[in-house]
Design a protein around this nucleic acid. Sequence first.
DNA 1: GGCGACATACCGACTGGTTAGTCTGCCGGG
DNA 2: CCCGGCAGACTAACCAGTCGGTATGTCGCC
Lengths: 216, 216
Amino acid sequence: MASRTAGKDHTDRAAAPPGTAAAAGGGEAPVPQRLMAAATRLFAERGYDRTSVQEIVEAAGVTKGALYHYFGSKDDLLHEIYGRLLRLQQERLDRVADSGSGVEERVRAAAADVVVTTIENLDDAMIFFRSMHQLSDEKQKQVRAERRRYHERFRALVEEGQRAGVFTDETPADLVVDYHFGSVHHLSSWYRPDGRLTPQQVADHLAGLLMRALRP
Amino acid sequence: MASRTAGKDHTDRAAAPPGTAAAAGGGEAPVPQRLMAAATRLFAERGYDRTSVQEIVEAAGVTKGALYHYFGSKDDLLHEIYGRLLRLQQERLDRVADSGSGVEERVRAAAADVVVTTIENLDDAMIFFRSMHQLSDEKQKQVRAERRRYHERFRALVEEGQRAGVFTDETPADLVVDYHFGSVHHLSSWYRPDGRLTPQQVADHLAGLLMRALRP
DNA sequence: GGCGACATACCGACTGGTTAGTCTGCCGGG
DNA sequence: CCCGGCAGACTAACCAGTCGGTATGTCGCC
């Protein structure tokens, strides 16, 4: 059931002259953003392959002409979504990692932070893990490379802690990172915004599990 | 509409091939199994929606007539793959849970076992978490119900340990289970059979992480 | 031990429907 | 008067599922 928000969403202003945009509401977001938002919602809801560009443009209240004016292909739209999430998370990880606190605190903060931002962008995250393989090979390579940067920065933190002796080195840092990201990845399969735990609570629990697993 | 497979269960059981099969060469598996194997490989490789029925039947060396003789729809093929993995893992979990060992040992064994069987059926596992949402609503509900049974059995084990005081109860058992299964699902994104760790080694590491996270 | 009747297993051309992407053209503002 | 921004009809490709047809096997019966 397409949740078309029957009230507010005036997708089709009928014969409203496009030129007089600012007429009354001025609030309408620019077309490219509307397309991205519609695509994100639909990709998360039905999957990339099951969403036709016709549906996207209808949800955004425009036509194909508009979409292909701003984006090169359907694939491009997906790639943009990836870029948005990756940039956000990388930036936040860098900030945490560069903070001056102790290793233990930096790892805990990074682990919790990625959980919170994932939950706050659950649609993006779901698309990320589900639709990676529908990207063209070239774009897929690019995404994987950025992903690896993130992964390696995180791993370096864990290794630092292991060398310093505040973490056990029973388990290779690589595996530790994959272990934690697995649970992050899985969030979109079970977390429901209307559940009993807030994003921060979930993040604290998951970061807590990781920290306990790393205890020497 | 009427599914021609109605009730029939032709999974990997070594059912006697109807007459002809064996011929001279001797190696050829029966057609339904060949179709399942081809579909599994292709779904894992290119995704469900990107795999055409034509490609499946070509890979299996038959034609559409054969496929629709044994399966009601493309969707059915996918459902069978899910059933195969779910039955296998449920059976193994039940066996571990019913063994007489201590809670700690049962949880460790269950946690490690699911890792090993997931790696040993990596294609199935990849299809599982990537293509769930392409199943018809009805079949999806069924799969989710079976999945929940598994999840709850595992959770009960963790809770038992928490009540007995051998595990910390800082984190709700539900979250613990999702934490671990997250990493299991994630396996198909990073594990490579030609890597340096054997399935058993990975399983021991991941189970070890879980057990340490649960230590009081 | 031959014959018809029916069943199983499969073939492959065909249909009806869908889709990403293209292209021509309108429209208003600078 | 020209150009960015967009409309929407159009096309060429594809694809799941259907259906009539064929080959082979099996069973009952004389």
